[in-house]
Simulated scan of single mutants.
Amino acid sequence: MNAAPNKPKKPCDGHSVAVIVTDPQLGVLIGDISDGRGASGVGGHVTDDFADFDEAAHGEVREETGLIVTSLRPLFEEPVWRSNPCKRGDGPFGLGHFWQLYVAEVEGCLTPDRGSFHNVRWVSKTQLQELAQRTLQRVRNELTDEEWASKPGLTFSWVRWLVEADLIEMAEPELQEIEEFMLTDETNRPNTARESTR
């Protein structure tokens, strides 16, 4: 999903996981990314600390939520390429990542990593759909920066993942609007000027 601010800066490796954490009673686990880009599930780069996609999925869930994966189901037979921007800059294959998307069930006590998330909560499919529509409104410039900041929708990249998992519905032209906007969105690109002042 995102790198916690207290982690050392690493280059993009071009390989990422996205993990949709689910519970039969509670719904889907999401949290607002700490830099204000919106709400997402768990995710991260693969080769920072892990040997492969499956190990990264287990590790990122544990690191970002404190929960232990008990069931992990990949949604793609093989990792798929997606041309999505990265806060670290372009990786070895250019703009984008090879992704594996998972649905996971978990156990344990929820202890979110504050560097990754705030406002972590379980939501229903209806609530996910409302957040996706809010993201579309953002893309269409129907929300001000202040309105988005006070109540963000989903991050641009996570709308497609939740459609792929059949948890929300969105027409392909609308998905394309979001994908195209994501490519021009500066909030998901390195800001060297800002980082050099830290």
Results as ranks from 00 to 15, higher is better:
G91Y: 04
L136C: 05
L110F: 10
Q137S: 14
S150P: 01
V159R: 07
A165Y: 08
E142A: 13
L167K: 06
W158H: 12
A104I: 10
W161R: 11
S124D: 05
F98M: 13
K125E: 13
A149S: 14
L143R: 00
S124P: 01
T135D: 02
T135H: 07
V120Y: 02
H118V: 05
R114P: 09
R138D: 05
E147S: 11
T155P: 05
E146G: 04
E142Y: 04
W148A: 07
D113C: 11
G153L: 03
G153Q: 06
S157L: 14
E164N: 12
L136G: 08
W122G: 08
P92W: 10
R121I: 08
E130K: 12
Q137M: 14
E105H: 13
L143S: 03
F117Y: 15
S150T: 14
S116Q: 09
R138S: 10
L167Q: 10
D113Y: 00
D166E: 15
N119W: 00
C109Q: 15
Y102Q: 00
P92M: 06
R121W: 01
L101N: 02
G115C: 10
V139N: 02
V159T: 09
T144Y: 01
W122V: 08
K151D: 13
T135W: 04
G115M: 11
L167N: 09
P92L: 06
V106D: 01
G94P: 02
R134W: 09
L101C: 08
W158N: 11
V159G: 04
N119L: 02
L110M: 10
D145E: 13
W148L: 10
T126M: 07
L101T: 12
P152H: 06
V103M: 12
S116N: 12
R121Y: 03
C109M: 15
G96R: 03
D145W: 03
D113K: 13
G96W: 02
K125H: 06
W99Y: 15
W161P: 07
A132S: 15
S150L: 13
G96C: 02
C109R: 15
P152L: 09
Q133H: 15
P152M: 09
S124A: 06
W99P: 07
L131M: 15
V103I: 14
V120G: 07
V103A: 00
G115V: 11
T111P: 05
G96T: 07
D166Y: 11
M170K: 06
V103D: 05
E105Y: 05
L110G: 06
T144W: 02
V106Q: 03
F93C: 04
S124L: 03
S157G: 14
G94A: 07
E169L: 11
R114I: 13
V120C: 14
R114M: 12
I168P: 07
P152C: 04
W148M: 09
Q129T: 07
S157H: 11
E146L: 10
A165I: 08
V163H: 10
D113M: 05
R134E: 06
Y102K: 05
